[in-house]
Design a protein around this nucleic acid. Structure first.
Length: 566
RNA sequence: GCGCCCGUAGCUCAGCUGGAUAGAGCAUCGGAUUUCUAAUCCGACGGUCCCAGGUUCGAGUCCUGGCGGGCGCGCCA
């Protein structure tokens, strides 16, 4: 597909004097107009003639130079129609050569992308609030890796802070009263909640908690440190089980504690740059000169009591990451509520003269809400544990499989893929910045614009391929005329992948997969594959195969399973 | 009060970074099944693209000002 566009660009460029990269080739809204189009408005202006005349003239000039591409002037547009067998040969040939790599590229070779995503707090189970960062971040990592970038996924665990002093004391005092053997995370959650209450009500407890946190901060390898380490371990074990279900693995697990030793050097570095000042007893960086909108919100790096802050830690992490990876982009997949924080961080870097500040991007996203736009919670009003939610959706998928396809082998595995597919796709199908209303009924329907719809289309193609006879017949490339919408869509896939990564918008890929599935399903309703004469069957089988590969590659990039049967 | 984001069909959202007659899903109504998987397909219904100006040959898309909603705003993360 890209080859046709490039050829058109080159020829148009030669005849107009425009630079090839300035020639915008778009696809007409109405397919009847052609496969590709070049609007001639600007060209007409340069040539001082009406757009339709410019289109006609350019059309006549280049018609002979584009083999396999018909050129038709229609009003102010110059439309192009790619000869069908050439299109089919090009697109399906490319897919069959590249297979699972179709859509990828090597544009990122030699460059590193650091992605900070998921980042749950330890001592608590992973709840639905973490799902967006986790799913979006993992999808962006796969997308960039597919384009040849070296990717480094970092899990910036919330494993530090005064609350761990309190938690340690709670463990010390009440470990016998809760279940810490079978399900340590649940037990810890209870202790954590009790410790929060005790901080308000029990002076003794509070004092002990402060002492414990001081010991933790001191780095002393004693009882407190051991308990904290244990909390980290059991929490991580719980997280890993969930990540495994989602097919996610970070490259680095570096919690806030990792950056503790780097805080003082970071502060010295910022101070040495001469951008800090003391305001109301706190160490701050004023940012108004860099960014007018930040005039009233300086970045605080050290509190009056001497302790550091969130921004200090993230700044330390940024310096460390820059020095270790020299990243082309450093993506923070964090909710939009924290926009100010990242804007401040970038402004601090800019004030310090770090020319790589623009490589740091806050990949923000909207809230996850329950029906009625209220905070999503369990029936009892508690935080909704992610695994419980997944279990519920998977159970429903299992029930639907039992009803619709009772003969299906491995129903358990497929139910997991379908249930997870529904959840993951639901999160990725709209623009990141939009709030996601988690409508369980809609997700459980498994129909319409959902992951299971795309999975189902993929499975139907698999079914055709399984039943195809093994025969060695030359495909008749001239007979895919009626499948042009599918071929054009398949040809667009690499461009969609590249744009989704560039814009950090997995939704662009998700929307593409929905549209492709719709196109394929419509075509399947009107055409037979197996029940045709051998040359037609052969070429349609290639179309089916190519379609299946693209659906699978796309779903895989999003983190959605692509079962062959369901 | 200040900063940022969002506003498109009854509901949830697309709209290829400014191009041809604004599209999907859900819901409602009607149709298609001796199925290469109906978790599907086809049709009907449904729009002052929040409002008002502006830029442009051309604006849902860009700019300004409103309106409505959300998020954030020094010692939390």
């Amino acid at each position: 597909m890209q080859e046709f566009i490039e050829r058109i660009r080159r020829v148009v460029a030669r005849h107009t004097g425009l630079a090839p990269e300035d020639i915008k080739i778009e696809s007409p809204r109405d397919a009847l107009n052609g496969d590709l189009a070049f609007p001639c408005f600007q060209l007409a202006k340069r040539q001082k003639q009406p757009p339709p005349a410019a289109a006609v003239k350019l059309g006549q000039a280049i018609a002979g130079e584009l083999t396999n591409i018909a050129v038709v002037a229609a009003g102010p547009y110059l439309n192009f129609r790619i000869e069908r067998s050439a299109l089919a040969l090009s697109v399906l040939g490319s897919i069959s050569v590249k297979g699972a790599k179709y859509g990828g590229s090597s544009e990122g070779a030699g460059q590193t992308i650091v992605l900070d995503y998921s980042s749950p707090n330890i001592a608590k189970p992973m709840h639905v609030g973490h799902i967006r960062s986790t799913i979006i971040g993992a999808a962006l990592q796969r997308l960039h890796a597919f384009l040849g970038y070296r990717t480094v996924g970092v899990n910036h665990l919330g494993d530090w802070g005064a609350q761990f002093g309190a938690l340690v004391v709670a463990i010390r005092r009440w470990r016998e009263t809760v279940e810490l053997e079978k399900d340590p995370v649940a037990g810890l959650l209870e202790l954590y909640q009790r410790s929060k209450k005790a901080l308000d009500e029990d002076e003794e407890f509070k004092k002990e908690a402060v002492v414990a946190y001081q010991e933790l901060e001191s780095g002393k390898d004693g009882e407190v440190r051991a308990l904290w380490r244990w909390v980290t371990e059991v929490s991580m074990r719980g997280f890993d089980a969930t990540y495994a279900r989602l097919g996610i693995q970070h490259d680095l697990v570096r919690g806030e504690s990792f950056y503790e030793p780097l805080l003082e050097p970071t502060l010295q570095r910022v101070q040495a740059a001469g951008v800090t000042e003391v305001s109301q007893g706190a160490l701050v960086v004023q940012l108004g000169e860099i960014d007018k909108g930040l005039a009233k919100t300086p970045c605080l790096l050290r509190q009056t009591n001497g302790t550091t802050l969130y921004a200090t830690r993230d700044l330390a992490a940024l310096f460390q990451r820059w020095e270790e990876f020299q990243f082309a982009r450093c993506l923070y997949v964090v909710g939009a509520e924290q926009k100010l924080h990242f804007r401040q961080l970038k402004a601090v870097l800019a004030r310090m003269g770090c020319e790589w500040a623009s490589r740091v991007e806050h990949v923000d996203f909207g809230l996850l809400l329950g029906p009625g736009r209220v905070k999503l919670a369990s029936r009892k009003g508690e935080v909704l544990v992610l695994d419980d939610l997944i279990d519920e959706i998977v159970a429903e998928a299992r029930a639907i499989i039992a009803e619709k396809n009772p003969e299906l082998p491995h129903p358990e595995r497929i139910a997991e893929q379908v249930g997870l597919g529904a959840i993951v796709f639901n999160d990725l199908k709209r623009e990141r910045i939009k709030d996601v209303v988690f409508d369980k009924a809609e997700i459980l329907a498994f129909e319409g614009e959902t992951g299971p719809y795309v999975q189902y289309t993929h499975a139907r193609l698999g079914s055709i391929l399984r039943k195809a006879p093994r025969e060695n017949v030359a495909p008749d490339w001239a007979r895919l005329e009626d499948a042009a919408p599918i071929l054009l869509a398949l040809g667009r896939f690499p461009g969609v992948v590249a744009a989704a990564a560039e814009n950090c918008e997995p939704s662009e890929l998700a929307q593409y997969l929905l549209a492709l599935s719709r196109t394929i399903s419509s075509w399947l309703a009107e055409h037979k594959v197996l029940d045709e004469d051998p040359p037609l069957r052969a070429v349609r089988l290639l179309l089916v195969q190519g379609s299946q590969v693209v659906l699978k590659n796309g779903l895989t990039l999003l983190g959605v399973g692509a079962p062959d049967e369901m």
